[in-house]
Design a binder for these strands. Structure first.
Length: 788
RNA sequence: GGGCCGGUGGUCUAGCGGCUAUGACAUUACCCUUACAAGGUAAGAAUCGGCGGUUCGAAUCCGCCUCGGCCCACCA
């Protein structure tokens, strides 16, 4: 049944974004998911919550721009394709690699879109295309053209430069990666105690190292200035084992006395410490690691071997010469790992293009302060990250399926020429027609590199708002209202978007940032493929329905504050709340008023009470939803339906609504008021919960009120007041029910005399009818019951 | 190593200076009540992670410890 409703929504073009609207626009910069694999439970939950936001804003008079983006560039796509089709992109042609990527994307795109559909999400368009609000793909010609255009602008602003720096090198993928793409893992290694000789002496020095294969790049040996064991070596020369190279020995505080042998060799490009040390000491480093992770001619006999093989080999060599004294396991230490390929990062020199970011750190802090974060913790994570930025952003990658760097170089003088803005170009296979401005030569070669995937995705808010494509619309509707995204990509997507879009437009590109936490497994652990604890959302949608899942997303908590533990039991139980809404609606639907009857209404005190209570729910929900809190208002509304509306109000007015008890007769106007109030309160409460419980409320509302709930305005405020004290009413009813139970009599049986709180006097008649009370008095605040 | 968040009945959670500490799920008992047994009514179940301090009064504030989770950092 749900699916049919989703289908109706999909086909109803009135839900589509209307760019000619006079309404204010609320724009949501949805995070384009990678569609290299089916969407996971986290996607399902977070997009569902975005759907709550979109539906709520629609009801509040906004034209909502809520497009779906699909991230189809970059390493994750390539890695998935390599795995799926069992190919190695470094061993096949670029054309072939791209074909495999396209093949993968063709197979997965439709499935991902369908998964969002099955969550009951209504994006502001279901069509792929170039128009504002269409489903967009980051590998489309128009998106890639915009990515290239932003590069050209940044180049022309002088913010991009090429430099030959030590980069984080992923030997498996054979590309540079950014600092933000590195994770640290505790990996165990070994200390190899190897023998250095002191020059012009017979003395041997044992030095512990974890990277014996780098002995050939050793430029210095250091020990701690306070270390008595080595003090005599200060200023002496040591001879490296096997390679027999002379290196100086010095005291330096960065050597710790109690670590390893307390004396260490400094190698060029072993890790970042070494690199900094070399720079600080004015040493000239020797590069030994090739692009593919093998060692080069500087490594002598180790040439051509990859790191692991080289380590094995040098260990054998040293052992055979008696230069290796001991191998001891190290404590697990933090090793830099490429997030995308899981390979250990090496540090080598490569020419790459950089976008300046270090000089904008202060500006970025200011921008961060101006964005409205729903959770201050997320803001702190961003500020912390900004503090750690120490080098400019390397934006080029040496891979295949991504946006190409739109630059050619003159064959003769190497002068770069840029593509024309607005066109999508592929310099690696396209020729450049023109002459070199510098030397007038007419032949060029294209840049083979592509952009970091964040260079693409960091323009999503520009793209969805029509930057350069629909410039007028863009200017009118920037900044984007909301950036919803995960906390794990604060240092990438959030940071790069704020940075890049500021550099391009000098604007802070969005107003609000809703940074969500994670859906974790039942025990509280992060879900991951390797752990095997991932949950497929399709299974949940089929077993428990999208409605149960949606209401769970709201009832479970606020995802921007806490992780959600994914428990099937809790999803199922969350769905039980739906039963109450369904049943109470079924009851109310038994009553209707004719036009004539609608004119004859006399609201009684209890009607005014429930109307004023419902108004509180409406106002609280509006305030909460406006602040992206879907948890508290939803829980309040559900409690209201169950505890106040269904259990008390409905029970009280039942007799009045039926009005068929010969002993207690209500006037027509009073009877009509009961029916009208039942319907009005139900209407309001369905409207309040419509963003969350979208499908069921849509169905019920159509049955009862013949209208599309999602096209209704948010319920108006009413100013009804009441003399009734709600808590006393609830307590009174509860006391009667309890007394009847304790005396073992049926709820229908009569009570001889009841003393009720004074405040309930206005509804005397109804209370008598409801509980079958023969005589009722109103004194003070206490309830007293005489059974017989 | 630095930082952030959290530890409340079996499970999850509210409270964040003041009456006998919310609520949900689960458990148990009873109940067909003119919408609802996928329901209702009720019961049992927590010395609020530990220790110390501030206070007339602490789950709530402070300090230390401990256990989880997350983020960051150049250590051989």
């Amino acid at each position: 049944m749900e699916i049919n409703i989703f289908e109706e929504w999909k086909n109803d073009e009135e839900y589509n974004f209307n760019e000619k609207t006079d309404k204010k626009i609320f724009s949501i910069d949805t995070p384009p998911p990678y569609i290299n694999s089916p969407i996971h439970i986290g996607h399902a939950a977070t997009y569902t919550i975005m759907d709550f936001i979109a539906r709520f804003r629609r009801m509040n008079g906004f034209e909502v721009l809520f497009p779906l983006g699909l991230d189809q560039n970059g390493l994750p796509i390539e890695i998935s394709a390599e795995k799926k089709y069992n190919v190695n992109f470094t061993k096949i042609t670029r054309e072939e690699a791209i074909k495999y990527c396209r093949k993968l994307l063709n197979e997965t795109t439709a499935e991902s879109i369908d998964s969002f559909f099955k969550c009951g999400i209504r994006f502001s368009s279901w069509e792929k295309g170039e128009k504002i609000s269409n489903i967009y793909e980051t590998d489309s010609n128009s998106y890639r053209a915009l990515t290239q255009a932003t590069f050209i602008d940044l180049w022309n602003k002088g913010l991009i430069y090429e430099a030959n720096k030590v980069v984080n090198w992923d030997p498996k993928l054979q590309t540079t990666v950014a600092d933000s793409e590195i994770i640290y893992e505790d990996r165990k290694g070994f200390f190899y105690d190897i023998v250095f000789k002191v020059k012009d002496s017979n003395e041997e020095v044992i030095i512990g190292t974890t990277r014996p294969e780098l002995v050939c790049t050793c430029g210095m040996v250091i020990f701690n200035p306070k270390d008595e064991r080595y003090k005599h070596l200060e200023g002496k020369k040591l001879i490296t084992p096997f390679f027999n190279k002379e290196v100086p020995c010095k005291a330096h505080p960065s050597a710790e006395m109690n670590k390893g042998t307390g004396i260490m060799m400094m190698c060029s490009y072993g890790d970042l410490t070494d690199i900094r040390f070399f720079m600080e000491q004015g040493l000239i480093g020797k590069i030994t690691i090739n692009k593919d992770g093998t060692l080069n001619e500087n490594a002598g006999v180790l040439q051509g071997l990859i790191i692991i093989e080289a380590r094995k080999k040098i260990v054998e060599e040293l052992q055979s010469k008696g230069l290796l004294k001991k191998i001891t396991p190290t404590q697990a230490h933090r090793t830099p790992i490429s997030e995308r390929s899981n390979a250990a990062i090496e540090f080598i020199e490569m020419p790459e293009l950089y976008l300046k970011q270090v000089k904008f750190k202060q500006k970025m802090r200011e921008i961060t302060e101006k964005v409205n974060f729903t959770n201050p913790v997320a803001k702190q994570i961003l500020l912390d990250w900004i503090d750690t930025v120490s080098i400019d952003w390397p934006i080029t990658r040496r891979r295949f399926y991504a946006t190409e760097v739109p630059v050619w170089y003159c064959d003769k003088c190497n002068e770069p020429v840029l593509a024309k803005k607005g066109e999508y170009v592929q310099p690696w296979k396209q020729k450049y027609n023109g002459a070199c401005k510098k030397c007038n030569n007419k032949t060029f070669h294209g840049d083979p590199r592509v952009f970091d995937t964040w260079f693409d995705s960091s323009i999503s808010p520009l793209y969805i708002l029509g930057y350069e494509r629909y410039q007028k619309f863009f200017e009118k509707n920037t900044p984007c209202s909301l950036r919803p995204q995960g906390k794990e990509i604060i240092r990438t997507w959030l940071y790069y978007t704020l940075l890049k879009d500021y550099l391009l437009t000098e604007k802070i590109i969005f107003k609000d940032a809703w940074i969500h936490q994670h859906i974790v497994d039942e025990k509280g652990y992060k879900m991951s493929k390797s752990k095997g604890n991932s949950i497929d959302p399709h299974m949940i949608l089929e077993k428990y329905s999208a409605s149960s899942f949606r209401i769970w997303c709201a009832v479970e908590g606020n995802l921007d504050k806490n992780d959600f533990k994914c428990s099937f039991n809790r999803i199922q139980n969350a769905g039980k709340n739906l039963e109450k809404i369904w049943n109470v609606s079924k009851f109310v639907s038994m009553f209707e008023l004719t036009k004539e009857q609608e004119k004859n209404i006399e609201l009684m005190e209890v009607d005014k009470w429930i109307l004023s209570e419902s108004n509180k729910i409406v106002q609280e929900a509006k305030k909460g939803f406006n602040n992206y809190d879907f948890h508290n208002p939803t829980v309040n509304a559900i409690n209201f339906i169950r505890d106040e509306f269904a259990s008390n109000y409905v029970e009280i007015v039942k007799r009045r609504a039926y009005n068929n008890d010969p002993k207690i007769k209500f006037s027509d106007a009073q009877r009509n008021a009961a029916v009208k109030t039942l319907r009005d309160v139900l209407k309001i409460i369905l409207e309040v919960l419509a963003p969350v419980n979208a499908a069921m409320n849509y169905y019920l509302y159509k049955e009862l009120f013949k209208k599309d709930i999602h096209k209704q305005k948010w319920p108006e405020k009413n100013n009804i007041t009441t003399k009734l004290v709600g808590t006393e009413l609830l307590e009174f009813n509860s006391a009667i029910w309890k007394a009847k139970k304790e005396n073992n009599i049926s709820l229908k049986d009569s009570l001889k005399k009841v003393i009720a709180p004074k405040s309930l006097e206005p509804i005397s008649m109804e209370l008598k009818a409801m509980h079958n009370i023969l005589e009722i008095d109103f004194i003070g605040k206490k309830t007293k019951i005489e059974v017989n």
